[in-house]
Design a protein around this nucleic acid. Structure first.
Lengths: 184, 184
DNA sequence: AGTCGATGCCAACACCTGTTGGCAAACGTG
DNA sequence: CACGTTTGCCAACAGGTGTTGGCATCGACT
């Protein structure tokens, strides 16, 4: 498929959609507002993405880019993962969009579950002693990382917002480490 | 003020509102649906609560009922708080409603910040070594407890949902404990 | 019995939503 | 140049939203 002239429009829509979904959530992010941000007509959004649901699906495509666990010393896994999550979150609106939307939109919640099942679970399975424990351990890791993201990027709890990323990772790292490798 | 005949209606509205806000979030919980659940006319909601925002404010009124820290052995504070949070969450729709709504509604987010500032912060201040650290420590506690609630009651991550409350508290307890009392 | 406020429902409003179809201009190709 | 396709905008639809005002009914009190 050759490069089309409309690719720029498609991309602009996606950027605007991510920003709106991230700041407003699924229902309050209107197609009209997204189109206005992208400086095009609302009907263009429909033509290129079908409907709002599919637009969100396209905008919420995300790769956590989790590192290879075997490349990290086992005792620094927790801190490493914590730092990686925070970096990934700060640099991209997509995860905040997904998190905000997932609170009220079932499809977005399903996407979130998928994200952690497909991307986080294997990493945890490779890092924890007994692979049979992996789901539970991955779930626990999710509670801490998503909770941190929720307080920092969505609810904006002042103490959590003001904390430097480095310090947040230092606090949360041992928690992740324990969820990954602690016995029982 | 004597008891009015409309008190039952008022209460029914509040119950229906909490359920709807908890399961649908702020925007998708419509006044019409709430009124239908309460078996009354939508205009009644307006008469008794003014508008949707005020209705939510009334429905999201919540007391964490945090225990007196001095009554608990200092080394069991983390586990105790974790259990208390989970109990409080399971037994009442209000917190889920607040959490879901806070993801997309700024007023709800402000309410959540207030809840933690007014109710959680003093408890943490009384429990941690240096009161000057209290805000940061309370923020960290919030990340773990809200993250757990998010994964369990909102996103419904299977491993976190299936985990018995007792086990969840056992895992999360030491984390809370560390956030409360660990040095630095 | 008659009065007055409280309670409730109905119908409607103004607005916003996702979504659609048609029409004009621009483009690439023969 | 003429052709069909792509890209874009405009106008409109149908349905849902919060919210309002008017009108009937009920209850209590004089």
């Amino acid at each position: 498929m050759a490069e089309r002239r409309s690719d720029a429009t498609r991309a602009a829509i996606l950027v605007a959609a991510r920003e709106r979904f991230a700041s407003d959530g699924y229902e309050r992010a209107t197609i009209r507002a997204i189109a206005a941000d992208a400086d095009i007509d609302p009907s263009m959004v429909m033509r290129y993405y079908g409907n709002k649901e599919k637009l969100f699906a396209a905008a919420a495509e995300f790769d956590l880019q989790l590192p290879d666990v075997s490349a990290i010393p086992p005792d620094q896994l927790g801190a490493g993962l914590a730092r990686h999550f925070l970096n990934r979150w700060e640099g991209d609106d997509t995860l905040t969009a997904l998190l905000r939307a997932a609170a009220t939109n079932e499809a977005a919640a399903a996407r979130m579950r998928d994200l952690f099942g497909v991307q986080l679970l294997p990493v945890v399975a490779a890092a924890c002693p007994d692979p049979a424990d992996a789901p539970r351990r991955a779930g626990l890791v999710a509670t801490q990382m998503l909770g941190l993201a929720l307080c920092r990027f969505v609810l904006r709890l002042p103490p959590v917002v003001e904390m430097p990323a480095e310090e947040a990772a230092a606090w949360v790292g041992p928690t992740i480490q324990r969820y990954l490798t602690a016995p029982q």
